[in-house]
Design a protein around this nucleic acid. Sequence first.
DNA 1: AGAGAATCCGAACCGACGTTCGGAATGTTA
DNA 2: TAACATTCCGAACGTCGGTTCGGATTCTCT
Lengths: 240, 240
Amino acid sequence: MVKNRWISDLHWVREGQQSRSQKTQQSLLDAAEALFSEQGIKATSVADVARRAGCSVGAVYHHFRDKTALLYALVERMTEEMRETTKRAVDPRRWEGATVRDIIQGYVEFSLASGRMRPGFKHAALELSRDDPQVRDHLGELKADASRGVARLLLDRRSEIGHPDPETAVPFVIDQLSSMLKMRLDPVLTKMTINEHSDDTFAQECLRSVTSYLELEPVTSESESKHPTGAAAPRAVKAS
Amino acid sequence: MVKNRWISDLHWVREGQQSRSQKTQQSLLDAAEALFSEQGIKATSVADVARRAGCSVGAVYHHFRDKTALLYALVERMTEEMRETTKRAVDPRRWEGATVRDIIQGYVEFSLASGRMRPGFKHAALELSRDDPQVRDHLGELKADASRGVARLLLDRRSEIGHPDPETAVPFVIDQLSSMLKMRLDPVLTKMTINEHSDDTFAQECLRSVTSYLELEPVTSESESKHPTGAAAPRAVKAS
DNA sequence: AGAGAATCCGAACCGACGTTCGGAATGTTA
DNA sequence: TAACATTCCGAACGTCGGTTCGGATTCTCT
């Protein structure tokens, strides 16, 4: 007799008793993530997931109440990761001594690099958020958190900013940058642009745009390359 | 006996003989467009379309070879419209005497206004282009055409531009603007921004950003309000 | 009016997919 | 090893939606 106990907070995911259970649960999640990101959510059947994970449909339903529970578990897993990553990335201590310019550059490079991880699944999550307002708000809040974090970093350096109204300008540039990055990172949306520059010139032009909009003082030789000292900020993947 | 003649160029849409036929074909297209934009493509069944159009499933299949034919016909209808609209919008004669600033402002206002027409269906078309590379390229080319049109208008006025490399800078700003506009216009993506300004301040800030990036000369009283003289450019819908 | 074509109807068909369930296989405990 | 729980299997079921098809209805032309 199976104790039908679902972990409500985790959206009807069963808590395994044996180590065997955890292993298949992970492989199910991995398989689902891969398939959802490759083919989309609706196009992936439960049988597909089971086959990819090397187990049966029954096993899927042993672990997850239904197909959407699998989805929610995946979204939770992903957002947890992202929350951690961005939390570290916008930690003020990490950016001590950095200029606005450094931060912007780091933001662009970081977004390009991290945005290219799990691109398909991020898209699948967005697909899910079309129908599910709860997921939409969840992801929106996550993104807004990150943006607010960067905004705080910049506003802490408002002495560098010549724009008359930094409270308006800073959120604006951040949205500006993240919009461009989203377009650039989405394989479908990319087709909608006319820009075909490498990541380097892209980052450079972003920097130039922000510099002039925020009216930062021009670069002096000594204020250059003030990247944070500790763990280096992730660099953009070089375009081939 | 029905002559089974499909119009291959129009993706297996039947050419009606009687006026009655054309009427139901139109109402089918209208119903499909409404439903696709409301619920998405996959979530809309053929029976739904038939019901909304006030006819039977059989009628649907009398006019369209299959469900995707209906889709293609709709995409074709939409792109035809868009092509016309943008062609008129970027006509150089329309912008005689206009400054770079005028054009940017017109572009933003125009995009805000036209982007809010049929938002759902545009999204559905994007959804379709996920799976169908042909549609993706088609829409991409359409968008790129528009962008190139605006770019040409701006490059024709390169004497106003202080940026050292207008060939790079102009496509960059256009992608920048269209990215922001896309985010602002997509109900899901909007959740991903921290900016909650009205259309007016948004347009204003866009203008400011572009002005400083392209290094345009500051506004003089006489160069102001040089909007095209003929048919007025569509204005942005005022935020309530 | 009447014959033949065009149009439309909707019940029936069919495959795909989510879900269930009885039992087999595997692990755990005594 | 015996008894019991956990985990897993996969055939079977029900639903849903795209598609088909034979016949009813409407139109056109003479």
